[in-house]
C-alpha cells in the first residue's frame, strides 16, 4: 500500500511536469529537452538546504524557487530568441550541467554517496505520505483547471499564435519574446517546485536520479497523449507511467529475474512508441479539438487494451525466459 501511494505520488509529479511541458512546447513551441534539469535542480536544492542547513521545507522551497526563477529567466534570455533546434540543444546542455554539478559539488550534495534523509513537509498527522499525496493532487488539479482555462483565454490564443508564426504576431503589436520568457520562467520554476516535492517523496537522493530518461518519459507522455490538448500530457502519463510503473510493478505477474528487465523494456517501448506516434499520428491521441467525452471513452478503451496487450506480452516473454532458464539448468545438470 505504501509503495502504491509512492507510485501514485510520483505519477502526479510526472503529470505536473507534462502539464508544464505542454505550455512550453504544446502552446509556445519551445522544445525544452532539459526537463530533468529543472526538476532535479529543485529536488536537490531543497534536499541540500534541508539536510545540510536544517532549513524548514517551506523556506527551502521558497529559496530554491526564487533561485531557479532567476536561473531560468537568465537561460531564457540567452536561448529563447534562437531557432528551435538550438533551444533543444541548449536545454539538454543545461540539464547536463545540473547533473554534472550534482556529482562534483560533494560538499553540498554528498555526490554519489547520496543525500538523505529528507522529511515530509507536513508532519501534523501520522499519515504524512497521504497528506503529501493530497498536496500533489491539489497541485495537479489546480494546474489542470488553469490549463483548461488558458486554452480558452486570450493569453492562450496569443501563445498558439506565437507558436504558429512569431514574426506575424510581433507585427500585430505582440511582445512575443516577453511572452515566451515569462511563460518559460514560470513553467520551469514550477518544474523545480515539483522537484522539491519529489525530494520529500524520495527521501534519499542520488545523482543517478537525474537521468535523461526522465525528460524522455515526460516527452513521450506529452507527445503520445497529444501535445496541443490541455489533457494530452495527463492522459499520456496515465498510459505510460500508469502501465509500466504502477500496474506492472504492483500487479503484473512477473518473476524476479524478469523484473529487472522491465525498465529497459519500458524505455525501448517508449522509444518505439515515440517513433510510431511521430510517423503515423503526429498530433498524438488527442488532437487540439478532441472533446472531453471522447477522451473519457477513448482513454478507458486505450488503457484497457494496452494493459491487456502488455500483460499478455509480458507473460509470454516471461514464460519464454523461464523455459529458457529451465533448459539451461537442465543442460547444466546434465
Amino acid at each position: 500500500m505504501a509503495y502504491l501511494l509512492f507510485s501514485l505520488s510520483l505519477l502526479l509529479v510526472y503529470v505536473g511536469l507534462a502539464q508544464m511541458l505542454h505550455v512550453q512546447f504544446g502552446l509556445l513551441g519551445i522544445p525544452n529537452f532539459g526537463v530533468v534539469g529543472f526538476w532535479g535542480f529543485g529536488m536537490y536544492f531543497v534536499g541540500v538546504l534541508q539536510v545540510q542547513l536544517s532549513m524548514s521545507f517551506i523556506d527551502a522551497m521558497v529559496l530554491s524557487s526564487v533561485l531557479l526563477a532567476v536561473i531560468s529567466y537568465g537561460l531564457g534570455h540567452l536561448i529563447l530568441r534562437l531557432e528551435r533546434q538550438a533551444i533543444l540543444c541548449a536545454t539538454i546542455a543545461f540539464s547536463a550541467i545540473v547533473a554534472l554539478l550534482i556529482v562534483t559539488e560533494k560538499w553540498a550534495t554528498m555526490g554519489v554517496v547520496g543525500l538523505g534523509t529528507i522529511r515530509y513537509p507536513l508532519r501534523v498527522f501520522e499519515a504524512e505520505e497521504i497528506l503529501h499525496f493530497v498536496i500533489l493532487l491539489a497541485f495537479v488539479i489546480g494546474a489542470q483547471i488553469y490549463l483548461m482555462r488558458l486554452h480558452k483565454s486570450r493569453l492562450g490564443r496569443l501563445m498558439v499564435a506565437i507558436r504558429d508564426n512569431e514574426e506575424l504576431a510581433a507585427s500585430l503589436g505582440k511582445d512575443t519574446f516577453r511572452v515566451k520568457l515569462r511563460a518559460f520562467t514560470i513553467t520551469a520554476t514550477i518544474m523545480g517546485i515539483l522537484g522539491g516535492l519529489s525530494a520529500a517523496l524520495n527521501q534519499f537522493l542520488t545523482p543517478n536520479m537525474i537521468v535523461p530518461s526522465i525528460t524522455f518519459a515526460v516527452w513521450i507522455s506529452l507527445v503520445l497523449g497529444g501535445k496541443e490538448h490541455a489533457l494530452g500530457g495527463m492522459i499520456g502519463v496515465f498510459i505510460t507511467f500508469g502501465i509500466f510503473d504502477i500496474f506492472i510493478e504492483t500487479y503484473a505477474p512477473v518473476s524476479p529475474e524478469f523484473a529487472v528487465l522491465v525498465p529497459n523494456i519500458k524505455l525501448f517501448l517508449y522509444g518505439a512508441l515515440l517513433v510510431a506516434v511521430l510517423l503515423y499520428r503526429p498530433t498524438g491521441l488527442l488532437d487540439r479539438d478532441t472533446e472531453p467525452r471522447d477522451i473519457l471513452i477513448g482513454s478507458l478503451g486505450a488503457i484497457a487494451a494496452s494493459i491487456t496487450a502488455v500483460v499478455t506480452g509480458l507473460s509470454w516473454i516471461a514464460k519464454g525466459f523461464e523455459s529458457l532458464a529451465a533448459r539451461a539448468k537442465k543442460d547444466d545438470d546434465a
Binding site: P31, R84, F216, N264, L267, Y270, G271, L274, V275
Partner: peptide, 17 residues
C-alpha cells in the same frame, strides 16, 4: 525539423534499450 529531432531521440532510446 524540430520534430525530426524528437523522432531521432525516440529512435535513439529504442536502439539503446
Amino acid at each position: 525539423p524540430s520534430e525530426m529531432i524528437i523522432l531521432s531521440v525516440g529512435l535513439s532510446f529504442m536502439l539503446r534499450y
